[in-house]
Design a protein around this nucleic acid. Structure first.
Lengths: 190, 190
DNA sequence: TTGACAACTTACTAACTAGTAAGTAATATA
DNA sequence: TATATTACTTACTAGTTAGTAAGTTGTCAA
C-alpha cells in the first residue's frame, strides 16, 4: 500500500486537538476515524487502546517541550524572551479555536482517566512547572523579574493562571485571557 | 409514599459533586441512581434530561453565590475578609476529595456540553468575576490591597489562578494549591 | 514470481448512554 | 371510602462506546 501520509502522526495530531477541544471523555475513536476518512479499526491498528493513544499524545508533548527548553540557543535567551515564548504557547492555543492546554484538560478529567494517563499528566505538569520556576528564579537574580516569596510559589501562580485563563476565555472571550497574560507581565515588571 | 428525604436535592448534590469530580461527560444517570439507591428512571422523573439537571446545578450555585454576596452583613466585611471567604470556597473544594470548581469543569468541557449549559456557565463566571473585580477595586481604594493596572485584569488573574490551581493540585498535590493562594495574598499585600 | 508484510476494511460484540412508556404502591384529598 | 396524585419501578429502545477477529489489498524483498 502506498504510504502517502503519516497516519499515526495524523491520529496523534487529531487526538491532541480533540483532547484540548472536548476533553478525554468528549471524543471517540469514531470521531478520529471519521475526520481521517478511515474506519474505526484503523485507529486501533495504530494505537491498541484509547489509553495508549492518550499516553502517546502526552509523551509527544513532553518530548516537544524538553527539546525546546534544552535547545542551546533557547537556553541563552534572556528571561523575558523565555517567558514570552512560554506565554506564546498558551496564546497560540487560545487562537486555535479556543483550545485549552493539555494539562488543564487532563487534570479536570483526572478522576475519569486511566492510571497511566494520570502519571503522564503528573510528569508533564511537573516538567513545565520546574522549568517555569527556574526561569523565574534566574530572571529575578539577574534583575529581569521582581516578585515576593519563593520562585516555586510564583511559578505555580503563573502556570495556574494561564491554564485557568484559557478556560475562562471560553466563557467570557479572548480579552479575558489577554488580561491574565498582561497582568502577569505587569506583576513581574521591575 | 413516605417522603423521608428530599430526592431532587440529593440528586442535585450528587450531580454537583460528580461534575466537580469527573466532568459533565464523566458521569451518567446510572451513576447517580446507583449512589442514591434508586433506578435510572427515578432521576428522569425529577430532571427530564441531563441538560436540565446540569442547568439546575449551576443555577443553584449561582443563587447560593448571589445570596451570600448580597447579604447585608457580608457587604460590611472588610475587603480582606471578603477575599478570605472567596479563597475559602476553593480551599474547601480542594479539601473535599480534590474537587475542581464548577466553572473550570464546565469550561474545560465547553465544546462538549449543550448550549443552555454554556450560557449558564458564562453567567456564573461573569458573576464571580464581577464580584471579585469590585472587591479588589474597593480594597485598593481603602488601602487594603495593592496591585498595578485595572481591577478587572487583576480579578481575571486571581480567578484564573484559583481555578487552575485546583486542577494542578490534582497532579502535584494540595501544597501547590496553597502556594497559589498564598502567593496571591502576598502579591496583594500593601 | 512468490510470499511476507503493512495498512487497512468488514463485520461483529458487550457494555454503556440518555431517554421513554406503562405499571405500581403509598399517601393526600374529596 | 373512592379518587387523584406523587414517587417511584419494570422493561424497554436506539445510539454510541472501546475493542476484536478475520479477511483484503497493495508493495516490496528474496
Amino acid at each position: 500500500m502506498v504510504r502517502t501520509s503519516n497516519t499515526p502522526r495524523a491520529i496523534l495530531d487529531l487526538a491532541e486537538s480533540m483532547l484540548q477541544d472536548k476533553g478525554y471523555n468528549g471524543f471517540s475513536y469514531a470521531h478520529i476515524a471519521a475526520e481521517l476518512g478511515v474506519k474505526n479499526a484503523a485507529i486501533h491498528y495504530h494505537f491498541h487502546s484509547k489509553e495508549e493513544l492518550g499516553c502517546a499524545v502526552i509523551q509527544r508533548y513532553r518530548d516537544r517541550f524538553q527539546l525546546w527548553v534544552n535547545n542551546a540557543r533557547v537556553k541563552e535567551l534572556p528571561p523575558q524572551k523565555k517567558l514570552d515564548w512560554f506565554f506564546g504557547i498558551y496564546t497560540n492555543l487560545r487562537a486555535a479555536k479556543g483550545r485549552v492546554c493539555l494539562a488543564g484538560s487532563l487534570e479536570t478529567d483526572f478522576n475519569a482517566i486511566p492510571d497511566s494517563l494520570r502519571e503522564q499528566t503528573q510528569s508533564m505538569t511537573r516538567e513545565m512547572l520546574t522549568w517555569l520556576q527556574t526561569t523565574l528564579k534566574e530572571g529575578r537574580e539577574v534583575g529581569a523579574f521582581q516578585f515576593k516569596g519563593e520562585a516555586g510559589a510564583k511559578a505555580a501562580l503563573v502556570l495556574s493562571s494561564l491554564q485557568g485563563g484559557l478556560q475562562i476565555a471560553r466563557a467570557l472571550g479572548t480579552k479575558k485571557f489577554h488580561e491574565v497574560v498582561e497582568q502577569n507581565k505587569q506583576d513581574l515588571l521591575v
